[in-house]
Design a protein around this nucleic acid. Structure first.
Lengths: 344, 344
DNA sequence: CTGAAAGCGCTTACAG
DNA sequence: CTGAAAGCGCTTACAG
């Protein structure tokens, strides 16, 4: 049962027990080399391995093969509800391919990002999935410089020669605007996310582009410095101070939208009777809130899974030229949006 | 800038550049061995390392030292909102001590649990934090057998010679019952969690113990097979079929409570006017729901942090005798509980 | 089909 | 204070 404590059984112990060279044991245990070994020996080795409670030492194997079968993931904060589904998608896909994933939280701080990447490089990760990218990102530059395979997810960078899996922000924002316009809203505001992120930037751009195309005013934009509830509160107050004729607010993500609803509630403004509010991402439990937040659902799990598949292909050398994959998001109409209180 | 691509710079490259033996480089780069090397050499080595863009190969170092500076974490599912804060507590604490964490989802399936542990052992993790324990758990037995340092978190096992960080279930359930009794509830039901988990079991036990002590009936207990919303729905229907005089339901966790509220809503039973409902854990956004769920808050981040500290101490050889740490939970009264509709 | 040898990049007693 | 050697547990050309 427990022949040697501390899991110190090596390939040499098996070799000794079976009476062959340890290189033969190595081959017998390797799925790809196994067919070069006689079936009887393979069987003996397997039995002995089981009997001794052998676990292959992956770190020795990594060192020799110069592969770690590990990938890194950089996210801002695990506690932000957008990420768990994305990471689960990454983990499931990586694991199915025999890879381990190492996740690090950067809190969107440059120092943490650098040290996380350094740690990952030290662990010889074969590639990295980056969910923390800013439009101009030093970490991404480092990956390019150092030839580390990487795929961006959720956010991307301005340069277009990289692999990325993002949501189609333009489509998402247009769906929201179509919906709001159909509800007769004319004074629509935007609580924009940080402009150094592709999500914040492209959603804001989609917003103004749409309104300009329809000859509607696009002056009601308040930019935030972080995708947080607090920033959402602040933005709404500032917006209402500037112009209280607005009847709808499109927030750049759900957390900002939640902050908007909080502040509106505090000011006695009713959602959706007085003002409609929308979010983006479709995080957990939005449908149970009061009012239930209308939002744009992005396929978080699938994005993680897809990014991982792409990364694994790059690692495998199937060097498709860089491509950004735009996943189609879906408008979720719930009860935070209604007919405009003051139709345009 | 980029002297060698692919991060292949080794200690030998530095040695060559500086003109010393590679073992000297190793010493100069090691915080603990550094003082055995002349300051000038140390400086030269550091400069050369920076110039060449050197990253220490942690896998080689691990192999030699037989330490990996990595710990494993076993959780059921990252997407269950109880876990992200716990894992963040684990990651922050581990990282501060120079450790990397590898997380695996087991979906409470035995096969996944075993293969996850096998993978972690292969990666020479120095210890593991287990959030998936059943009261009688083969994985825990394996850790004991194999002398793998481990700490349980959230759930524990029946045997008491293990380290565990859990919430004080008895205290938590008593707080809820005190609150409900003060609101004049007399027919109180319990939607119990799976009895093979310590949380499900101890919360149920606390429930019946309390009522017995107060000479109140404790017959309204419905046991579920999983901590899920669906099981919560099912349990409530079954409970109401058995006895519709109940005025309050204590669910074993928040997900079950959410399911209870859903089913009650579908049946036209008002919460809290007709029936009060409570949860356990205090997951994200409960305060924004409708009605806001009263629950027992457990310090998830702190539990993760504490479990990690304990694990690191065990690894360090500071073998305090096994101790289970019971963190004090806190009753959060919100709007899903109110005065009994039919006082006892 | 199998063995013997070399080596992945480090660390660390052992000398000096 | 520094060098030379050995070795962590594997894998894999090279022979046979």
């Amino acid at each position: 049962m427990n022949p040697k404590t501390k899991g110190k059984v090596t390939i040499r112990d098996i070799a000794e027990l079976v009476g062959v060279h340890h290189s033969t044991v190595s081959r017998a245990l390797s799925p790809v080399m196994r067919d070069k070994i006689s079936p009887e020996v393979v069987q003996k080795v397997e039995r002995a391995a089981k009997k001794l409670g052998y676990y292959p030492n992956l770190v020795a194997s990594s060192l020799k093969q110069n592969r770690s079968f590990a990938v890194g993931v950089l996210i801002p904060d695990l506690m932000n509800p957008v990420f768990p589904p994305m990471i689960r998608g990454i983990q499931d896909t990586a694991e199915a391919a025999g890879y381990t994933v190492i996740t690090a939280n950067t809190d969107d701080e440059d120092a943490k990002e650098r040290s996380a990447l350094a740690m990952m490089r030290g662990r010889s990760i074969e590639g990295v999935i980056v969910a923390t990218a800013r439009r101009n990102d030093p970490t991404v530059e480092e990956c390019i410089q150092s030839d580390i395979p990487f795929v961006l997810v959720n956010r991307t960078v301005d340069r277009e020669d990289v692999n990325a899996v993002v949501s189609d922000e333009d489509f998402g924002i247009r769906s929201v605007l179509d919906h709001l316009v159909a509800l007769r809203h004319a004074r629509i505001a935007h609580v924009a996310g940080p402009q150094h992120t592709s999500t914040g930037y492209h959603r804001a751009k989609a917003f103004t582009d749409y309104l300009h195309a329809k000859n509607l005013p696009a002056d009601l934009v308040e930019t935030t410095s972080k995708f947080t509830i607090e920033e959402g509160r602040r933005a709404v107050r500032s917006l209402l101070l500037r112009d209280n004729s607005l009847t709808a607010i499109i927030a750049s993500n759900d957390l900002l939208a939640l902050g908007c609803m909080d502040a509106l509630h505090d000011m006695g403004v009713l959602v959706p009777e007085d003002v409609s509010v929308t979010g983006y991402d479709d995080i957990l439990f939005l449908d149970r809130m009061h009012p239930a937040l209308s939002t744009v659902a992005v396929p978080k799990y699938e994005m993680g899974a897809q990014a991982t598949k792409t990364l694994l292909e790059i690692i495998g050398g199937n060097v498709s030229s860089p491509v950004v994959l735009r996943m189609q998001p879906r408008l979720m109409v719930r009860s935070s949006t209604a007919r405009a209180s003051r139709p345009g």
